[in-house]
Design a binder for these strands. Structure first.
Lengths: 360, 360
DNA sequence: CGCTAGCAATCGGCCATGGAGAGTGTCAAG
DNA sequence: CTTGACACTCTCCATGGCCGATTGCTAGCG
């Protein structure tokens, strides 16, 4: 009894023809006919034979003919099968890897957002597609320093330094006036008691000590700690991800319709749909590929997202990848996304360790 | 002797015809013929007469015919004349003004960038064009608080609070190691001596005291003060302006070519050209209008920028406006930009005063 | 002298036509 | 199972005719 794969794709020959067809279509962008395939290297079959095989492939839903007298093009299912079992990946050239690594490590000077934009633009320029990188969330944010400054009208400016060099600040609306002394005492208390601890730890200790500490300061302290909570999104301006090279997408014929481009860009602006899509790739290790209609969003019907999570300390802290037309050079793109995810992870890791050393 | 204007446009009638033609073209987007104009309200002339006048207007370079059997459309010069002397501005409705004002004031909570994005998206939604607002530079940045934290490898994290609630931070590479005590002393020195002073003032005093203070700290202090220097651009991520509603531009027929859209968006990404263009409007008070070819950048040949500077304390701190196709509803857009500039200025002013009160 | 009606001329947009080219499916022969 | 041959289908493109819109010009009118 043959397994499911062979029952779906009867012959090795059919697989080979499908692979060559997809590769050809990705390169040329034109429907591929039987004659073209028969001339292709590796096959020694007449066009008529190939036509028979193509008819089978069409019955199985891997390819379609746009109209009677055109060649065939892959369907979403065809692409899916191609990237899952047929594609022959082309590893990145070693010098390119090294250059990318240096580029990322140079950019990273304490600010997690900086490395995200560096990675995003690197992805874009390497693939000629749009690059997207989510801002890494801090797996364990440790309190480094805290400071309160009074403002007018019961407002307090809280400045929080976490993980050595990440500065966050927010204005807190308080329920009563706080004097400068009070604020200084609160900051001193937090700095003396909690420097070097995880923020979650700080919060739970604050909650536990609710009676022990001066209760009236608790709201202030808890609010200020919450600023750097990885769960809540950072401010509305610094959004969930960094996008680069969107304009590259306008180079593709399949997206040359202004209306499509517009919807795509509006989706980029909304961010929501892209983020939920990227979230799906957090679940799985390694490179994930979302092809067109599978995404669930109409705007992305003709697009593919190649994404991979990146990790610090074996913990996933973000996702990066590229967005492009379904017809993209998968054999080049997949390794690029893969390598970039590893390099971003190790760059973040290196920095984390540097900080730990300095902290001691 | 008649003045230049009448010598250029002999008759009142010709002016009226030009105005109606431009208004009609802006409304409909189609070349306007003599027959259409003769039916238009306010004119009681036969098409033949109008044809004569139109021939004169064409000789003067205000209008052109795309081809023999089409009507006429305004040239850049025609638009120029229209907005300078013919347009009948349509003031914003009072309720809209009030709504805009509240919107802006609500958004402003110490962060100058927040009001810029609020104004930008408001401009975009009011005009259905792309809105652009430069980040206000601080006319007089006063030092509120400063803090140094040591990092690994001779690096120091400097945190600077200016103007009450504006937090800036940067990592400084130093030429030797600094101990935690040294850094604390430096921060204390700056906070005690210079809080409340203008940053420029701080710098000059530091330079003057170069012998008096511990010289070896000077580099650190000067560098940290320079962080908030309005002259240098803020970090590469937070760019010079906030752009909103770019996708609105894709709705216009004259920009329906993907290649044009792409170049336009790339120009937005580069920022440089847009910024130099906006800078020109800093010179003059009030609303400035850059029409197409006058801009000097080919990408903007078919675009118009309507811009106005906004002020705090009678000093220009930024520019805002909209970008759209040359064929835009000037009579509505110009008042909107004008009012928004005033409201942004007064919102910033209100906040400034609130801070001054709290500072005392 | 300015305005107007009429007229011929011009040009883009639209549509039907028709041929070339590319590719398919099928069928019978090897 | 493969292959060559053949009829068929469909897109693409160039052609050409027609319609409608608009113009410039000229002669006539007030």
């Amino acid at each position: 009894m043959a397994n499911d794969l062979t029952s779906e794709l009867p012959s090795e020959r059919a697989r080979q023809i499908l692979r060559i067809l997809v590769e050809h279509y990705i390169r040329e962008g034109q429907p591929v006919g039987s004659r073209t395939l028969s001339r292709s290297a590796g096959l020694d079959l007449s066009p008529a034979t190939i036509r028979n095989v193509m008819a089978d492939l069409e019955d199985l839903g891997f390819i379609v003919a746009p109209h009677t007298s055109a060649g065939r093009i892959p369907t979403a299912k065809g692409y899916r099968f191609f990237v899952d079992t047929l594609v022959r990946l082309q590893p990145m050239a070693e010098p390119d890897v090294a250059r990318l690594q240096h580029h990322l490590e140079d950019r990273f000077r304490g600010d997690a957002k900086a490395i995200a934009s560096a990675a995003s633009s690197a992805l874009s320029s390497l693939t000629s597609l749009a690059g997207v990188v989510t801002i890494p969330r801090q797996p364990h944010a440790t309190l480094r320093h805290i400071e309160f400054l009074p403002l007018s009208g019961r407002r307090v400016l809280a400045i929080l330094v976490v993980n050595d060099a990440e500065v966050q600040n927010r204005i807190l609306d308080m329920d009563r006036d706080y004097g400068e002394d009070e604020l200084r005492r609160a900051a001193n208390f937090l700095n003396e008691q909690f420097t070097g601890l995880d923020l979650g730890e700080v919060r739970s200790r604050l909650l536990a000590n609710l009676d022990g500490t001066r209760e009236f300061m608790n709201r202030l302290m808890l609010d200020s700690i919450a600023i750097a909570d990885p769960a809540r999104q950072p401010g509305p301006d610094s959004a969930g991800y960094v996008l680069s090279g969107e304009t590259q997408l306008m180079n593709f014929q399949e997206l040359s319709d202004v209306e499509k481009i517009k919807q795509l860009f509006e989706a980029f602006g909304q961010q929501r749909e892209i983020l939920t899509l990227l979230d799906r790739s957090v679940a799985a290790q390694g490179v994930q590929i979302f092809i067109g209609e599978g995404s669930g969003y109409r705007i992305l019907d003709e697009c593919t997202i190649v994404a991979a999570p990146y990790t610090v300390d074996d913990q996933i802290v973000g996702v990066l990848g590229v967005i492009g037309p379904t017809r993209m050079a998968y054999e080049r793109v997949i390794p690029i996304v893969d390598v970039t995810a590893r390099l971003v992870g190790s760059a973040l890791n290196a920095n984390l360790n540097a900080n730990l050393n300095s902290g001691s």
